[in-house]
Simulated assay, not measured.
Amino acid sequence: MKKIYFLFAVLSAFVLRAQDSGKFRTDIELGYAIQSGANGYLFSIEPKFNIAEDMNVGLRITSTYFNTSVFDPAYLEQSDVNSGSIAVGGTFDYYFDDLTGGSFTPYAGAGLQYSVLSNDYTNDAEGKFGGLVRAGFEWGKLRVGAEYNVIPNSNYSDFYGTGTAYNATNSYIGITVGVFIGGGRW
């Protein structure tokens, strides 16, 4: 009977999951980004601090790249445009580990961010405040998620001197896969 209790205690140590409050961790994620009329990629790194067993706050740094097609008023044709952004912002995540009780843990989060946007159709970079909402799961040290980044649209004037402007959609959906390092016992 003692062997059964010992086996149960050892298995529980591997299955039980909780963040250690007061510990740091860092998420590193790569993803596929979908924007209105464009597809691209994203990379993010996010140092976090566990404020409680099921909650953490972080500083997220994200870089995105998109390739899209816009109407070029100088040549009266569609042109490919490369665009990108770098965003920095604060985040909050809540983990629902009470629902699963194991190494699989769903999470939901939100944040505020400042994005610097640019593209190869204009000479000007533009900064915008926005936000994000996200949800996903962690399994062991693997992190998989979906996010919606809300960034206000931009109006750009071309650098051909025609004064013609076009409207760029900046909000995007990201599907990410990554790992995290640190964070205490998970």
Rank of each mutant, 00 (worst) to 15 (best):
L11E: 04
S12Q: 07
S12L: 15
S12G: 13
A13F: 12
V15G: 07
A18R: 14
Q19T: 04
Q19A: 15
Q19I: 00
D20T: 04
S21I: 02
K23V: 03
F24G: 13
R25D: 10
T26H: 05
D27E: 13
L30A: 14
Y32L: 09
G40P: 05
G40K: 14
F43H: 07
S44Q: 15
S44W: 04
I45S: 03
I45A: 11
I45G: 10
P47D: 00
K48F: 03
F49N: 11
F49Y: 15
N50S: 02
N50D: 12
I51P: 11
A52F: 06
E53P: 01
M55N: 15
V57K: 11
L59M: 12
R60N: 12
I61E: 01
I61A: 05
F66I: 00
T68E: 14
S69L: 05
S69D: 04
F71H: 08
F71I: 00
E77P: 00
E77G: 03
D80G: 04
D80T: 10
D80W: 00
V81L: 03
V81E: 00
N82L: 01
S83C: 03
S83E: 01
S85H: 08
S85K: 06
A87M: 09
A87F: 04
V88F: 10
G89E: 03
G89C: 09
T91A: 10
F92A: 06
F92I: 06
D93E: 06
Y94S: 00
D97G: 07
D98R: 15
D98Q: 15
D98E: 13
L99M: 10
T100Q: 06
G101C: 09
S103R: 15
F104N: 04
T105E: 09
P106R: 08
A108M: 13
A110S: 08
G111E: 10
L112Y: 11
L112W: 09
Y114G: 09
S115C: 14
S115W: 10
V116M: 15
S118R: 11
S118I: 01
S118N: 15
N119W: 09
D120S: 04
D120T: 02
D120G: 07
Y121A: 14
Y121T: 01
D124M: 11
E126L: 09
E126C: 05
G127P: 12
K128I: 12
G130W: 14
G131D: 09
G131R: 12
G131Q: 10
A135F: 15
G136V: 08
G136H: 11
F137K: 06
F137M: 10
F137A: 12
F137Y: 13
E138R: 10
W139T: 03
G140Y: 12
G140S: 07
V144Q: 03
V144R: 05
